[in-house]
Write a protein that binds this DNA or RNA. Structure first.
Length: 216
DNA sequence: AAAACGGGGGC
DNA sequence: GCCCCAGTTTT
């Protein structure tokens, strides 16, 4: 698939009604605009489906909308609030430490560079890239399982590993569209282009897809 | 039982 | 790069 067709895919997905049925859409409205809440929500979403993550994010942010309020909670309280997201105990530990680090080393603000974000507890390459794109509007790509699978199905890349997918996407897609990739492709993956049985007949971008009807 | 989920950390 | 960690939901 050429770059031009892929940009058509992104534009079409942006306008598609199926996007508003996707859990990730509720994820974006459930958290407020602040970089801190975006960081917290993104950290919670790791290895957990958005349908489970959204209520947990709302419970936690209702009590701890700022680093100061989060730092005031003990680990067990945080763990109870975010249950049952995956790795909830590890995440509770990270969140507790994260609040302290933000206050002590960053003046209570979320840093806006990849290097600084990656140094935060519980924040790796993917989480950092999502925060860069969504909280600060910087060009960044996070290749999760949805983005990896669908990029290959559409034919914009041809790669075995997420890292290789990321390289190829950055090479073929202009930076201005990078942040769009995450939202659009994840939403499509959650609604019609799942890993087992893609629902190609109702797919809004099937006219551009190189593997209509073919799983994996 | 196994796959899947918007991975992270240590080495 | 590789290996280990750790929880729930869906298939």
């Amino acid at each position: 698939m050429e770059t031009k067709a892929f940009l058509q895919v992104l534009r079409t997905l942006r306008r598609s009604p199926v996007l508003r049925q996707a859990p990730i859409f509720r994820m974006q409205v459930s958290r407020s605009e602040s970089p801190f809440t975006i960081l917290v929500a993104t950290l919670l979403s790791a290895r957990t489906q958005d349908t489970v993550t959204v209520p947990a994010v709302e419970r936690l942010l209702a009590v701890a909308p700022t680093p100061e309020r989060l730092a005031a909670l003990d680990e067990d309280t945080i763990a109870r609030l975010i249950y049952p997201v995956g790795f909830y105990r590890t995440k509770a530990r990270h969140l507790k430490k994260l609040a302290r680090v933000l206050i002590e080393r960053h003046g209570g603000r979320v840093p806006d560079t990849l290097a600084e974000l990656t140094r935060l507890p519980g924040v790796g390459r993917k989480t950092a890239n999502l925060v860069l794109g969504e909280a600060f509007g910087k060009p960044a790509i996070c290749v999760d399982t949805h983005v990896h699978r669908i990029s290959n199905r559409l034919g914009i890349v041809r790669s075995k590993t997420p890292l290789e997918t990321e390289r190829q996407l950055m090479e073929k897609v202009p930076p201005a569209y990078w942040s769009d990739i995450n939202f659009c492709l994840v939403a499509l993956g959650q609604t019609v282009c799942g890993p087992r049985k893609p629902r190609c007949p109702v797919c809004p971008v099937r006219r551009w897809c190189e593997r209509v009807g073919v799983a994996r």
